[in-house]
Design a protein around this nucleic acid. Structure first.
Lengths: 327, 327
DNA sequence: CGCCACTATGACAACGTTGTCGCCCAATAG
DNA sequence: CTATTGGGCGACAACGTTGTCATAGTGGCG
């Protein structure tokens, strides 16, 4: 900036005025300054600016499990859209479902003085965020609630959705329904399990623990689970997949099976409608999840001090075929 | 920091020493300082630190067309992985295939003094980056080359891959092959068109302009294209989809067709193997694309001054069924 | 006992920017 | 003519941090 000032024959303050479009600059002077800026390729240092002004940095942090997972990338996109509309940029990070990594990312974002943080929490302990929140960095939890603090949260109706899925399968004649989901340590998985039990109870079918398998979905873990569930004296006639990852692995495991059970996936996913049979899903609007969370965050950034809110978005059944086959 | 210093009864410099693990601090003093830091919830301001040290900011920028597109989110993930290994964080932005937006994002990243930029360019003019690159911000182009400047670039073998796809279809008896791709303004689409023509020439089949349709893929644009290609006196017997978006829309358009043409997709995509018939693709390693680009970028960040490099990654055929049906 | 080396600490400036205040000068009013 | 106004501009401090240098104290050595 001082180089520009020297070249234009003005003080650095005047250069500052020009780059900030402040009024009290003579047009001729402004032009000289602009020419100097152009010639030197000057670009103002936003870091220094933010430091001096003590204002916001114009960035927010987003922590998800894996930015490469289509579910989270859609979320990322929705968040970015809102952030852009508020003139902010997004720092993203993948926690890899590891609470230490989540914490590390969150604290690094705080050190960068992001204006706020959106997090799909991996861990259950969030006390480490209390000082940061008290210091003025708003945090909104997405898809899963905070472990041990009170904070804004945006969720989907995990229980209601799962109950509806079970009800739907029972309506089509199933009484041996398996629940195949991610590890019970994960909030959404354990909530959906609760919904599964409640669905069984309401439909008046026996809740059989042997038909519930919950662990991190990999091709082999899901493959093994499928073998177990579909064999034996009373095999499952329908499978409820606890999320989109489980559903994809389940489909692959079933691809070459001779007799395929009915299935419903919690979470919609691309091409579900083009498979054979098309996959019935409990769908929810992932973009809406991101929108709602980001809107909430920016309300906080702009000074909203009301008590923490909890938003629950609806889940609805999209019947496509796989969930409507008889036992 | 001065609050911490006051509480611990030391100077701010000593606090600085403690937070930076500098050796010459008495253990007792260090402990008092740590206690004060804990009590006040102090976290050092990375912006101020970077300003003072004049060092790197520890961030890189990534510009893609759409962070929500699985192709780019996989790329994002790969880039993030490398960035993390170099202790950097990633600012992401979606250009929405708009060159003004691309430019805006890139210049904002520069204003934030990112250590480097990775960009899947939307536009063809990149002169605006010259001052920034001269000022020391390395830029690596991914998937598409820079328009009018010389810079590091990582591409996939678009021409070779398309030639192979055409050859494969011809080998299975097709002579009326359609090419359905994104707008020819997009580098990858136009390169693949070149490959398509070359493939036709090499295989000795007639290149029929009427079988080439290139425009932004939407359900309706692809649907219309399919109707046109598959009707008439000499309909196409095979379709080559120019990218994963086109492929998905194509599959949906064909879902209820009575006679389905053979098809190959340039780009692999999730569940391609589970469709009926499974989709034959020209696959390339998107993660490798991100890895290579990020590695190249960090080499530059660390001072590599060699002449700009161009890396071309291989594409290979994955025969699954849809590309092996006879006319 | 004086000197040196070394440890532990602090004062101060500087990074690049902007807010505050004050100065100069021309134009206008009285 | 003088007094007042306000447009245009610059000097300076400050944002939070760290590099440089100086200083005070301590222990060892000749």
């Amino acid at each position: 900036m001082s180089d520009v000032a020297r070249l234009a024959g003005v003080s650095i303050k005047t250069v500052s005025r020009v780059v900030n479009d402040e009024p009290a600059v003579h047009p001729d002077t402004a032009e000289r300054v602009m020419a100097a800026i152009e010639q030197l390729g000057f670009r103002r240092n936003l870091g220094a600016r933010n430091l001096r002004r003590g204002s916001t940095t114009g960035t927010i942090g987003l922590i998800v499990e894996d930015v490469g997972n289509p579910f989270y990338s859609e979320l990322n996109r929705a968040v970015e859209r809102i952030a852009t509309s508020f003139g902010r940029q997004v720092l993203t990070g993948s926690s890899e479902e590891n609470s230490d990594r989540e914490r590390e990312l969150a604290l690094e974002f705080c050190a960068r003085r992001v204006d706020g943080i959106l997090v799909v929490p991996a861990g259950m302990q969030h006390g480490y965020l209390v000082p940061e929140m008290r210091a003025g960095t708003p945090v909104v939890f997405i898809d899963r609630p905070a472990g041990d603090i009170v904070a804004d949260t945006v969720l989907v109706d995990n229980i209601g959705g799962t109950v509806e899925a079970v009800t739907h399968l029972v309506k089509h004649g199933h009484r041996r329904i398996a629940f195949l989901a991610d590890s019970a340590d994960i909030f959404t998985a354990s909530e959906r399990l609760r919904g599964f039990r409640e669905g069984c109870a309401r439909a008046g079918i026996f809740y059989d623990e042997r038909l519930v398998i919950m662990r991190t979905p990999t091709p082999s873990s899901v493959g093994d689970a499928v073998s177990a569930l579909l064999s034996g004296l009373e095999p499952a006639t329908a499978v409820l997949a606890g999320n989109n990852r489980v559903a994809v692995h389940l489909l692959r495991a079933l691809a070459h099976a001779d007799k395929r059970p009915a299935m419903i996936s919690f979470d919609d996913f691309e091409l579900a409608d083009l498979l054979d049979p098309p996959v019935t899903v409990m769908a929810h609007d992932v973009s809406a999840l991101g929108h709602a969370a980001a809107e909430l965050l920016f309300a906080r950034v702009q000074g909203d001090q009301s008590t923490p809110r909890k938003v629950v978005l609806p889940v609805h059944l999209v019947a496509r075929g796989s969930g409507e086959v008889a036992p």
